[in-house]
Design a protein around this nucleic acid. Sequence first.
DNA 1: TTGAAAGCGCTAACAG
DNA 2: CTGTTAGCGCTTTCAA
Lengths: 337, 337
Amino acid sequence: MTGVSTQRPTLQAVAERSGVSMKTVSRVVNGERYVAADTAARVLAAAAELGFRPNALAREFRAGARSATIGLVTGDVANPFYSRIARGAEHALREPGYSLLSASSDEDPARERTLVAQLVERRVSGLLIVSADDDHGFIADERRLGTPVVFLDRAPVDVDTDTVVLDNADGMRQAVDHLLGRGHRRIGLVGDLSRLSTHHERVEAFGAAMTAAGVGTWRELVRSESHDLDEASRAVRELLATESPPTAIVTTNNRITTGALRVLAHLVEPPALVGFDDFELADVLGVTVIAHEPDAMGAVGAEELLARIGGDAGPPRHHVLPVRLVARSSSTQRPAR
Amino acid sequence: MTGVSTQRPTLQAVAERSGVSMKTVSRVVNGERYVAADTAARVLAAAAELGFRPNALAREFRAGARSATIGLVTGDVANPFYSRIARGAEHALREPGYSLLSASSDEDPARERTLVAQLVERRVSGLLIVSADDDHGFIADERRLGTPVVFLDRAPVDVDTDTVVLDNADGMRQAVDHLLGRGHRRIGLVGDLSRLSTHHERVEAFGAAMTAAGVGTWRELVRSESHDLDEASRAVRELLATESPPTAIVTTNNRITTGALRVLAHLVEPPALVGFDDFELADVLGVTVIAHEPDAMGAVGAEELLARIGGDAGPPRHHVLPVRLVARSSSTQRPAR
DNA sequence: TTGAAAGCGCTAACAG
DNA sequence: CTGTTAGCGCTTTCAA
């Protein structure tokens, strides 16, 4: 009785201890019917005594090379947009018994591929991905080999798969119309990496709305490739330092909005601001935003994946989640000069 | 050639295709030495042709019931404090090749146990946990059976294990001293669930600092159990509505600070505020905080776990991460009345 | 440098 | 109601 076993007892050990077959133990452990009450009790007692824990690895391994696990790849778990997607997915997967294996690509396409490969090797049952890449051939391969994939936020350019995205065009149109309606004509835009599909869609909608309003020179006030807070701050400063600076600025995601706020907070007469993505303290700071539900994106993506895992082989579905402008003081307090 | 196999090719299939033994394929796939160059080339070609992907489930299954996976249990992935812990852990585990299986307990002890059980059954190699429970006997069992566990942020009360926590006492002392130094005497505190060890430590340090300053009535202005934003807002409103309201408020975590800001933002003469935990827009909002590095907590916890997985059986280690007060306008603009 | 055999822990498919 | 057999995909002996 000295020394404690560091090995976890197996189903076989429980079988020996309780004097029944492995199959019977298996039945009890899995709550199947057709087991005598006293047999079950004996098995349960032995299992408890030994500290038996079923080995999910073994179970899933033999079940046919597929685990009760879903992979989630985003740019950065700590970005609230992504972490809320993760939460939404996790909640939707909880009931059906799936766990989330999540990984961050740091928005690096090469790393993203590595992560996808790892997850596939771990035989996740499905993959949710906010892709930072603009070539998805490698993912098409995985799909063909049987791993369903749902693209979130950014639609793949070269594969027709299930997607869950925001109504980017509508959101940007709302932002521009809102500002135009308040008299702004010189509206600047600070955007993310131009290789991302969301960026394209948002800038395009921006241009369309501006052009429709007769502002053909909108391109002059568009700045892209702001991938972190500092770059966003720099772009905003740069825009404001031009000959005739914008009276209003639109940012295309929560990171950029934060970077912009760091600059605008120091100005006596800051330009109006509308940010894509809502964020926790937007109400306290009075920032007008294009709001939406990242949790819903994760949840809808998870549901879609579950349907595919369940055998649904219908044509790809493209979910478009609504967005809405929430007007706050950053765009309503001061009229355009 | 019609119809695409939905089955992933196995190592055996590659062996047959390239006319060598399974062991040889295994050697090539794992980059072992002692394989003739042309044999390796032939195997690689066959593997590529077939789209072979090693089955990590099978590999880890036989390797001895332990996966290249680490479990992370927190209250809510979408809480920036937790998501930064996750990021720190993920980065530290990247190089050694471990993946993170993360799950949210919603701060519910029962759910936390379910999650721990699930992760153990999936044979994670180790467990990082920010526990919402105040009884950790069940975790002690897991440890004894060979799964190393590192407690983050909140030390377990009844088990002596590896922990990574903040210097809560020092942080709270800094907060109180800072406010006392600016003339505040009536200082309120809005805190989280009283069953959490962090809450205890912070409130105790608060009381000690207040008592040392001769304010023996500090308990009157302490409010606990504020577990979400609305409850925090309510507690703040309630404090401010008392006969002689506090001239300063200390909050004990980022959620509560946000809830407090929602209330204070509407006041013409808000009380001073110091919040535990830094947060992204604290600089823009000018909120004085007790700052620290959640990423480091995740990273240190992960390193600790790796050491244990590597066989380090030394006595439990208790890491205490430093915190520092970052003074901003919320506590420096107005002197105490 | 290569191969054959055995087995990791579990459950489906069949008997009894 | 209970037990036997076989095998999931891989790697670790041990031989050749």
